[in-house]
Design a protein around this nucleic acid. Sequence first.
DNA 1: TTAAGATGGAACAAACAGGTCGGAAATTCG
DNA 2: CGAATTTCCGACCTGTTTGTTCCATCTTAA
Lengths: 193, 193
Amino acid sequence: MVNKEEYRRRIILTASKIFSHYGFRKTTMDEISRALKKGKSSIYYYFSSKEEIFEAVVLHEANQLRARLTTAIKEVDSPPEKLRNYIYVRMKEFAKLSNYYNAVFDKNLDHYEFIEKIRARYDREELAILRLLVYVGNNRGVFDVEDSEYTAMAIQTMLKGMEVPLFWRKREVDINQRLEAILSLIFNGILRK
Amino acid sequence: MVNKEEYRRRIILTASKIFSHYGFRKTTMDEISRALKKGKSSIYYYFSSKEEIFEAVVLHEANQLRARLTTAIKEVDSPPEKLRNYIYVRMKEFAKLSNYYNAVFDKNLDHYEFIEKIRARYDREELAILRLLVYVGNNRGVFDVEDSEYTAMAIQTMLKGMEVPLFWRKREVDINQRLEAILSLIFNGILRK
DNA sequence: TTAAGATGGAACAAACAGGTCGGAAATTCG
DNA sequence: CGAATTTCCGACCTGTTTGTTCCATCTTAA
């Protein structure tokens, strides 16, 4: 193998699929190595533990999510549309990136420090984006809020509410309607009358 | 619990979902009991082993499959249409009943005796149905075959070919086209010219 | 040929998972 | 109500699994 980084990437992609199907706990190093057609111990040349692989996988998905959210925001110009795109894409992607999702919600993973770090980091970044969106909208006179920071936090709280598994236990159509309702709520409480 | 049978059924339904997601091996008695909100040892009051639960689950799915195939055949009258319905429904249902599917194809389950029994029984029953279909069609003068038994076996062989995982690694549309092609092949080799 | 980069077989300690057992709780019945 | 029977479960046992380490062995490039 000429390029070590390249092989790490391959491990991440392969492990990602297995993790997303069986979860962290039920995925064994043996499966990962078999999927890669390598000896189990060989994996340890690239990663020092199963945890470290999972960490890389989750980070990978987090990066994907970030990238897609960024483009979603850039696609449109007006702050309300940016916000709408952000929320929409965030919801759709969250459902797809199952490892990241599990990392954030699986109570059995609570004690892993790196999970906490990723959770915290994502929270911080998201808040920054929302704050900026609100702030810009406010400056342009489209929004009308007292404090960008706290408004952003309020929106984030609402987004977190959409993350909990119960929210998804509904039909697809219903989900879209609920999304529209949520957006409408945010906007009507935010838009200048 | 007034009715022991009723509770067994509930265990089967719950275990079925977990088995279908994680497979026989990765599903633990602990999970099953947790999903049922019962103590692990309580399950052993209803089933004497994990294997026995899986056996019941697979049998349950096999019965479902049989029931649907039966109605599918009864829905139409002419032998060619019966055959067409049979094959069509069999394909669609097979994809859904994942425990049954795994029981039939997972090489890791090869050494379980009850799996062998279920496989053998299903084979026998299917052959009987096909034989009858061919026989009746022949009698009515719609089909034209020498030996119903061997023709039925030939058709069954073809159906088995559609079961192997590779067959499904295609897009839905493609699947339908292939199905049509298979049907057309069977009929054109079978129908009186 | 040698040294550094990769690989995988074998071994191991710790965790896990299927199953048992004795008896507690709940329910039924007289 | 109380005894009998059904249902449930916590604690435990035991063989297996699994993450990880070690080290001998290949492979590659200089």
